[in-house]
Design a protein around this nucleic acid. Structure first.
Lengths: 350, 350
DNA sequence: GCTAGCACTCGCACTGATGGAGTGCTAAAA
DNA sequence: TTTTAGCACTCCATCAGTGCGAGTGCTAGC
């Protein structure tokens, strides 16, 4: 931001063409090509002076004395923030996206979105699993296992099935379990999980004599079932192998760190969580992310929403030298389409 | 096998030390080191003659004229089949394995096994999800969704929960669905899925008048639910990034092909399926696998069984130059321990 | 059948030369 | 004051040449 004031129109224009040129060629760009490439009619010598200024400001950098200039992270940042002219999505791509995401046969829209992101950008695509703030309990079921263990199956939000094994102090008969489940279903079905948790806790603290044994058992079991709901976040990552084609990631150590981060998952999840807050497209360039593994990568993300509630993030991971002007609108549109695809077209008649 | 007859004791001994030496050093091994390394007191010159013979037989290969010899795939194969002296597992490792696999807290023994394979070998570990031939239906449940869709939840083999969405011609009320489920549970619980499928088909072909509408609905729904049971095979792969450390896989194209195979999954599944048949440890060295992606890799696998039925495969993926004498017993033992861990210690009181 | 010796080959690391690309600086032009 | 032309300089990439070390194949002798 502050650089924007310091720099005059001409320097900005030159930085812009430099970044564009570098993104398309991958070679350090020298004063001569810049002089020809830019519309301003300036001699290479003049441009060299400007370049020296830009270098002082930390916007560009010379790999060695007689190479051209390469944008630094700040250079990219300024470019992305103020200089970039976004290219609208080609209609061909748009229809493709729309088709793939709305006609979801496999029941795996998330995977489809991730694959689209990766395939169309030739980089890596990532989509977090949607995670609603309020989760409604639809149905619960208990099945007895050996050794006083009980298999709990519960359905939330219409059709998401979860299961969990709990250990009970007492051994229940199938009939008792059935009764407990019936009791819980009759009371809590349609309520949010938070409400259920709270209510269950309250019931246990209250005078327990008002309840009969069956109800008490049911509530105790519910407490176990919904106890520490890990709420494990996760994401679908596709096209990692695309990243192996980029020269900036050809270094085996770098690549390894990156792939390790992918399989550890936690760093990536943290990063994506940050993007969840911001609305619109969020971009991390190089070291900006704060995670070493992503040092030479950029991450372009957008959150996606279902019925106006932000439920997840999706994005593209690639080298810092990527075609931001195409990727940004692409990620933006994909997020919107995914949100639409996830939206239940009509309220289900509960 | 046929080479074994042609080669005399001495040549075999030399091949053995050559392979051992190459595995530990990674350098082409010359006649001088071989002369010192082997117990036979032979001069380098003699050894050179033997090497020439081995090269004619295609067991070793010289990267260039003055470079020492490296084992070929056939060389490794002969070594593994006839020359290898397996090192028993260190007791420390054994106890570690045992602990990790039997005290499974996460409920994810498969993942734990895969991680152990990768961590202890510093290569990649893979474990297929167990897949029983006969699957018993434990419990089935129907939940209505919108638009005549029904969420089917069924539990097999004590505690494996599956779910599936089916489309029914007619729209059922929750009560009807409940009845159908009850009917199916009462009749089919405890039977194998195959039997259920067959029986359902028969019921539909039979004169339908004997059955009341509810039963008929239930059977029709069951047919949809168990229709084409995709039975998708899958595996858990860990430590892929370990493979990035090996010089033989440093080539980016190779590495990329390999990782693409990992995420495509199908080739790997085919390969592992082949290992399912053979009992005991199965080894693919280099091109033997038939899949280009694995050209420079070896795969050491073993099937694992639960109560005498082979249900899956597990193994280690690494460069052809790996310490077979340690990996083989390790994979063997891990397979046995995993089988034991999966075995329900006592029959559950159904 | 084994071994010693010798000539030879090959790869590798180092060296120096060359050319090209691009810069910084300075002095002149606008 | 800003821009430009010119010049010297720096650095990189490429190539050829060199010397060294490792290891081989072959041959003659034990």
């Amino acid at each position: 931001m502050s650089e924007a004031q310091i720099l005059n129109e001409r320097s900005m224009q030159l930085l812009k063409t430099l970044v564009e040129r570098y993104i398309s060629d991958g070679q350090p760009v020298g004063s001569r090509v810049l002089s020809k490439d830019s519309d301003l009619n300036l001699s290479p010598a003049t441009i060299r002076n400007v370049m020296a200024d830009l270098e002082d400001l930390g916007l560009v950098h010379s790999p060695h004395t007689s190479a051209g200039r390469v944008p630094t992270v700040s250079g990219y940042r300024l470019f992305v923030n103020s200089l970039l002219t976004v290219k609208p999505l080609e209609s061909k791509e748009l229809t493709h996206l729309h088709q793939q995401l709305s006609h979801d046969e496999q029941g795996d829209v998330i995977g489809a979105a991730s694959r689209l992101l990766a395939d169309l950008t030739k980089m890596a695509g990532v989509v977090t699993l949607p995670k609603r703030e309020v989760v409604f309990l639809r149905h619960i079921e208990f099945l007895p296992l050996s050794h006083g263990r009980v298999l709990v199956i519960f359905v939330t939000n219409e059709q998401e099935v979860h299961n969990k094994i709990i250990h009970t102090a007492k051994v229940f008969s199938p009939a008792e379990l059935q009764q407990s489940a019936n009791y819980l279903n009759s009371i809590y079905s349609g309520h949010s999980l938070q409400a259920v948790r709270k209510s269950v806790l309250k019931d246990l603290q209250d005078d327990q004599e008002r309840m009969n044994q069956g109800m008490l058992d049911a509530v105790k079991m519910a407490q176990l079932a919904f106890g520490q709901d890990a709420a494990k976040e996760d994401y679908v990552l596709t096209g990692e192998t695309n990243l192996m084609g980029f020269s900036e990631l050809a270094d085996m150590d770098r690549l390894r760190k990156l792939f390790e981060a992918f399989s550890q998952k936690q760093d990536v999840i943290h990063l994506l969580d940050q993007c969840m807050q911001a609305d619109g497209v969020q971009i991390f360039i190089g070291e900006e992310s704060g995670y070493q593994a992503f040092d030479h990568c950029s991450l372009v993300t957008s959150s996606y929403s279902v019925s106006d509630e932000v439920v997840g993030v999706l994005g593209v991971i690639g080298p810092t030298r990527m075609a931001y002007e195409k990727i940004i609108p692409f990620v933006d549109v994909t997020a919107k389409l995914l949100g639409a695809a996830l939206n239940p077209k009509s309220a289900s008649p509960l």
